[in-house]
Design a protein around this nucleic acid. Sequence first.
DNA 1: TCGGTGCCTTCTGCATACAATCGCAGAGCG
DNA 2: CGCTCTGCGATTGTATGCAGAAGGCACCGA
Lengths: 221, 221
Amino acid sequence: MATAWEQSYLTLRRRLADGTYPAGSRLREEELAAQLGVSRTPIREALRRLDAEGWLRVVPNQGAFAAEWSRQDIEEIFDLRALLEAHACEQAAMRPTATGVAALFAACEAGEACMPASTLAAMETVSDANVRFHQTIWEMSGQARTRSMLGTLAVPPMILRNFRHFDEANLRRSLAQHREMAAAIASRNPSLAGAVMRAHVEAGKAIFLAAAPQGTTGAAT
Amino acid sequence: MATAWEQSYLTLRRRLADGTYPAGSRLREEELAAQLGVSRTPIREALRRLDAEGWLRVVPNQGAFAAEWSRQDIEEIFDLRALLEAHACEQAAMRPTATGVAALFAACEAGEACMPASTLAAMETVSDANVRFHQTIWEMSGQARTRSMLGTLAVPPMILRNFRHFDEANLRRSLAQHREMAAAIASRNPSLAGAVMRAHVEAGKAIFLAAAPQGTTGAAT
DNA sequence: TCGGTGCCTTCTGCATACAATCGCAGAGCG
DNA sequence: CGCTCTGCGATTGTATGCAGAAGGCACCGA
């Protein structure tokens, strides 16, 4: 087993992502320690890292609060994702690996196999395939910092759940773009791959903003 | 006074930046605690954050090691800076503030006043003005995540000290670009401001790579 | 002489204890 | 009636102690 603080970090991050701790809610150290069966020390170290990565905000002498995301935050995150994902995509297209390309096409097929995604389970599968597709590109880029930055940008709840706002047509467009990117990467075409990725992320941004018209979006959504 | 762990974090980060702790060197908790006059607990929390930000690498049961930067790391960092600094620059040009623009021009003049920067002290002044210029743009962008990401990208020793590689002509070019960006921001021209910033960072990358031809660059340089 | 094994030292990982701080409630006062 | 100030409870901040892992070194055997 890994260190206790690392385990705590992973558990807390997952819970922050899936909405167990609503945006803005306070996280008390002792309570978390009891829940995870460790002492406050590793919890505090996990909280420091989550703070550094933007998952929560630690106020001295007041404690940790799950991050809240304003509309501006969302826009910024999508903009940064557009920049960084496109960069990663271009890098991946410069030196595609056989296993990486295979993984990309596998993710494409896994997603397409569920279409039309009428049931909730099918949506989950499509969403998982989507995450795998993007993560594969991050890996293929070979850019460690880009990967870790995207890891902290692309996982917040509202991004992960954006798929809920996708209708049938948008899902198909998204999957088609995935396939287009996979082909561009396989054929070593960085500018095409990057351009499609930019369009892909921008489309997601538009859908999200249209679905969440105003104000701050807590985890209540 | 702020919390001990925050103070420790700032002190350690400064020392990592200025080379007090050479790249690859091990940082022992008890030693740091003694140096900073605190116990190991706040030191550990500071180390966790420095790890998350890429300043050092913490290996379980082995301790913390000051980060080492390969040539690939350097290239990636400059590439990311080019993306993010240009983004910040565009954002700043969309809503320039009077005080921000004034600060930009002030930084320009502070740098130009030292030219030709023959003495070491003059170089320091130019370097400080350079840092202030960039940080002002980050602030003006109003993008919190962009700012914090750039904060972790633009400070590593080899970036900060890149000025040492600038000759007279490059310094003048750099200062001229600063003035061009300030003007573009003041006149609300995002695409010009962003393009100049991209060129500015790319030029720095080229100079750095030319000066450090190969291999990993520890703090020995 | 070389490889392996077991001890030993050192340092990190975690738990616990104590100190400091903050927010809040209620009393006292204007 | 409203304001302020103080005391208390709760929670975070820091220090310390102990257990366990990693690496080094000596000793032993081949």
